[in-house]
């Protein structure tokens, strides 16, 4: 079979999910000794193609049209490519932009669409695993179609590594300009600033458990002691106690530090989506049932107001 995976980029950068799509696509292709094709649409497609040429990629299709994501361009280009290649599985990212074109492509090509897959298997047919009811249960979905469209959840597959020897083939998509009925006029950073928490090696992250704004000083002291960067979960930012650029999570930043210390954070799925890629996760929370302990490597079930001062002291000595 053939798998076609569509890369994602934004404002000149390939997004991490692109290399995860390569891994997921390679795994599926391997199940049937098949080929993995990757598509990249708009922007500096040749440069992107270079960086997408990881181990296991057979062909990279480039569609040079425009700079930034436009769903009308993506929908047309990916539809035409899928019709030409006829992939058994069409993989796209479960991202905000993925959700803006994948359903339209699936509709036009006539493929069933399974979104937000966290696992995929191929054995006489595609089986996808998804989560329901806020991750409380998992479900498996079988596709009985010859060809299926899937969006994969970011950070569920490891990034593909190594260098490949893919053939790069420019694809001449016929883009009907009159069908482009939406125009991206710009971007707006919500809560920019001087700090990029996604670059930090060590993050001290605070959640609702801090209770009061003035208690944040305790966490700042800890961050200083550990030479770490301060971050937070959504409620802290919603309250205006820290700026938006400190927010970890789906609508904030996705971080992958060496060490992530979650303090007073329960670990809702939207938060976890932003930090589960950390190498080592430490949780301090007085609720032993908090979901953060499901993904933590190390934990302390105790009052943060007792533990954090002791940690500052313990680390200094």
């Amino acid at each position: 079979m053939t798998v076609l995976a569509v890369a994602e980029h934004r404002r000149g950068e390939l997004r991490d999910v692109s290399h995860e799509l390569v891994t997921a696509g390679r795994e599926l292709a391997d199940a049937t000794d098949g080929d993995l094709h990757v598509a990249v649409v708009s922007g500096s497609v040749e440069e992107y193609a270079d960086r997408l040429d990881r181990d296991g990629v057979d062909v990279i299709h480039t569609v040079a049209h425009g700079e930034e994501f436009n769903h009308d361009v993506y929908t047309q280009a990916v539809t035409q490519l899928a019709e030409e290649i006829d992939p058994t599985v069409l993989l796209m990212p479960q991202s905000v932009n993925g959700l803006d074109y994948a359903p339209a492509v699936a509709n036009r090509v006539g493929l069933p669409l399974i979104t937000d897959a966290v696992d995929l298997a191929y054995d006489d047919g595609l089986t996808a695993t998804r989560e329901l009811y806020g991750s409380k249960v998992e479900t498996t979905i079988d596709s009985h179609a010859d060809s299926t469209a899937v969006t994969i959840r970011p950070a569920e597959w490891p990034a593909a590594e190594g260098s490949g020897d893919a053939t790069v083939e420019p694809f001449e998509a016929t883009i009907d300009e009159s069908a482009i009925r939406s125009t991206v006029t710009g971007f707006q950073e919500v809560g920019g600033g001087d700090v990029d928490i996604s670059e930090a090696d060590v993050l001290v992250s605070i959640g609702r458990g801090i209770e009061e704004e003035e208690n944040l000083d305790l966490i700042r002291d800890l961050a200083d002691t550990l030479d770490a960067t301060l971050s937070a979960s959504r409620p802290i930012v919603d309250n205006g106690w820290l700026p938006k650029n400190r927010q970890v999570g789906q609508s904030g930043k996705v971080v992958t530090p060496d060490v992530y210390i979650a303090i007073g954070i329960s670990g809702a799925v939207q938060h976890v989506a932003g930090m589960k890629g950390a190498d080592t996760i430490v949780a301090i929370n007085d609720d032993p049932n908090a979901p953060i302990f499901d993904i933590a490597d190390y934990g302390i079930v105790d009052d943060l107001f007792d533990v954090v001062p002791a940690l500052i002291e313990g680390f200094e000595s």
Binding site: V96, N97, R181, G186, F187, V190, N245, Q247, V254
Partner: peptide, 16 residues
């Protein structure tokens, strides 16, 4: 419209 992209970025788009 503004579309809420990941990572604290909003896309400003005009939709017919």
């Amino acid at each position: 419209v503004h579309r809420e992209l990941e990572g604290g970025v909003e896309e400003l788009t005009d939709v017919e």
